[in-house]
Amino acid sequence: MAPRPWQAAVADGALVTVFAAIGRASHDETNPVLAAVLTAWPFLVGAGVGWALVRRRSGAWPLTLGHGIPVWACAVVVGMLLRAVTGQGTAFSFMVVTTIVLGAFLLGWRALAARVRR
């Protein structure tokens, strides 16, 4: 059974936030929750742009692996652009890690869900 759109949106949002929290855990933060939110928001906006793009272009919700690719791409690209314009870091190593981890997270659950549906 495919997830409902709201379940998929919650999963994407939670996984982007987990990505940010894991990344921030390696830093000595006075407020780790706020730091994770500040790190996550550009990528959450980017994922939202990806959701809107898929919905507008295909009429479908991005529940499948194929429709998850634009969500992932937008999360990374829009997220990095927002980080750049707001003065947050966009080091090459951070971009590589972000691309890999968000790919694993945002595409991974969709691949698992497709496998379970078979």
Rank of each mutant, 00 (worst) to 15 (best):
V101D: 07
V16W: 04
L34C: 07
A20I: 12
L82C: 12
V10N: 05
T64M: 02
A8R: 04
A11N: 05
G48T: 01
A35Y: 05
A52C: 14
G13D: 11
A114C: 08
C74S: 15
G108C: 09
V96W: 02
G66A: 01
L102W: 09
V37P: 01
V97F: 10
F43Y: 13
P5K: 13
R83M: 13
P70W: 03
R115W: 15
A8Y: 09
G46S: 02
I22G: 02
L112Y: 12
V45G: 05
A20V: 05
L53R: 08
T64P: 06
S93C: 00
V101P: 12
V96H: 01
V16T: 10
L106E: 09
G89W: 09
M95A: 15
G68E: 00
S58E: 15
M80I: 01
A91M: 11
V18W: 06
A113F: 11
V96M: 01
L102G: 14
N31D: 15
M80A: 10
P3R: 13
G59K: 08
N31S: 04
G79S: 06
L44I: 05
V71Q: 00
R56Y: 13
Q7W: 10
L102S: 06
A84I: 10
V71R: 00
F43V: 06
V49E: 12
P70M: 06
A60H: 13
V76D: 02
P70D: 03
V78G: 04
S58P: 09
L81R: 07
T64I: 04
V18M: 10
F94M: 12
A20N: 12
T64Y: 03
A111T: 09
A114D: 14
G23V: 11
R57V: 13
T30I: 08
A47K: 01
V78C: 11
Q88S: 11
A21C: 06
G89I: 04
M80V: 02
N31Y: 02
T17L: 15
T39E: 15
R24P: 15
L112V: 15
A47I: 00
V101S: 04
S93I: 03
P5W: 13
A36R: 03
A8L: 07
I100G: 00
E29R: 14
G23M: 10
G50I: 09
G103F: 12
L63V: 12
G108D: 14
L34P: 01
W51V: 00
G48S: 01
A35C: 13
L112C: 12
R115G: 03
I100K: 01
R4M: 04
P32A: 05
R117K: 14
G89Q: 06
P5C: 13
S26R: 11
R57N: 12
G79W: 05
Q7R: 09
M95T: 01
A40V: 00
W6N: 10
V77S: 10
A75D: 05
V96N: 06
A104W: 06
A52L: 15
A111G: 14
H67M: 00
V97S: 14
A2S: 14
R56H: 12
V54Y: 03
A104R: 04
V54F: 00
